[in-house]
């Protein structure tokens, strides 16, 4: 896989890569994708995809109030927080 393609996908995955990492991953992806492509020779016409091992169904419960962890306990876990909110760099320019 070419460096530009690795960089494009890494951008989608929101991961910065060094040039060195890019080159290494590109070469390894070629090997891995080659191996994966074994499945191309299978005839899968009419086969339903399985995203789970068993049939999964929605599980409903009654909508009853219950104790939860609370916002304060969770915002405290963020690397930067202020007044019960999580702080991030400015996203709207003046």
């Amino acid at each position: 896989m070419k460096n530009e393609e690795v960089t494009r996908i890494a951008k989608l995955a929101k991961i910065e890569l060094t040039d060195e990492e890019c080159g290494l991953l590109g070469r390894q992806f070629d090997d891995i994708l080659d191996y994966i492509k074994k499945i191309d020779k299978l005839d899968l016409t009419g086969v339903e995809p399985a995203c789970h091992p068993f049939e999964v169904k929605n599980v409903f419960r009654d909508d009853e109030p219950a104790e939860s962890l609370g916002a304060a306990a969770l915002t405290r876990l963020a690397p930067r927080h202020r007044s019960g909110m999580i702080e991030v760099p400015r996203i709207i320019e003046k």
């Binding site: 996908i9 989608l12 995955a13 929101k14 991961i15 890569l17 991953l25 891995i32």
Partner: peptide
């Protein structure tokens, strides 16, 4: 400097090579 940079750099520094490999492979 930006929110995008926060994501991209935090994930660059935070994840090891195999994690990057799998996340990028899956994204692809």
């Amino acid at each position: 400097r930006t929110l995008a940079e926060l994501y991209e750099r935090s994930r660059h520094d935070g994840f090891g090579t195999e994690a990057k490999r799998r996340i990028i492979l899956g994204t692809y």
